[in-house]
C-alpha cells in the first residue's frame, strides 16, 4: 500500500483543486482548455495565475520534501516533438485531456468524457506497446 499512498493523496489534491476552481470561480480545471484559451488571450486574469500555480506546485514540493519530484524522460527529441504535437492538437480537438475529461468529466458522469477517457487510455496503451515492440 505504501507506494500507492502518495499517489492516492496526490490524486485527492488534484480533485480538491478541481473542486475549488469549480465552486469558487465556476470553471472546469481542464488543463488543455485553460492553456488553449490562454494562448488565444482569453480570461488571462484567471488562466495565467492557474498555469503559473501549476508550475509553482513542484517548487512547493521541493520546499516540503527537500528534493524535486522525479521527472525522467526517456524519449529522444524527435519523439518528444511528435508527442507534444499530438497531445496539443488531439486534446484541443477532443475538447479535453486527462484533467477535463478524466477527472471532472468522469466526476460529472459525462458520457462524452467516458468515451474520451476510454479512447485515450486505449491509444495510450497501444502506443506504449508499439514503442516497447520497437525497442524505444
Amino acid at each position: 500500500m505504501t507506494p500507492y499512498l502518495p499517489s492516492l493523496l496526490g490524486g485527492m489534491l488534484i480533485g480538491l483543486s478541481a473542486a475549488m476552481l469549480l465552486l469558487l470561480n465556476g470553471r472546469i480545471a481542464g488543463i488543455s482548455g485553460i492553456v488553449g484559451r490562454l494562448t488565444q488571450g482569453a480570461n488571462v486574469s484567471t488562466n495565467l495565475p492557474f498555469v503559473a500555480g501549476l508550475a509553482l506546485g513542484p517548487i512547493v514540493f521541493l520546499f516540503a520534501f527537500g528534493h524535486w519530484p522525479d521527472v525522467q524522460i526517456t524519449a529522444g527529441w524527435p519523439l518528444i516533438v511528435v508527442a507534444g504535437l499530438l497531445v496539443g492538437f488531439g486534446s484541443r480537438m477532443g475538447s479535453g485531456c486527462t484533467s477535463g475529461h478524466g477527472v471532472l468529466g468522469l466526476a460529472r458522469l459525462s458520457p462524452r468524457s467516458a468515451v474520451a477517457v476510454a479512447t485515450f487510455l486505449t491509444t495510450g496503451v497501444v502506443s506504449v506497446a508499439m514503442m516497447r515492440g520497437a525497442g524505444l
Binding site: L86, V87, G90, F120, T123, V126
Partner: peptide
C-alpha cells in the same frame, strides 16, 4: 482528438 491525444500521451 482523444485518440491522437492518447497516442502522444503514450509516446
Amino acid at each position: 482528438g482523444s485518440a491522437l491525444f492518447g497516442l502522444g500521451w503514450g509516446i
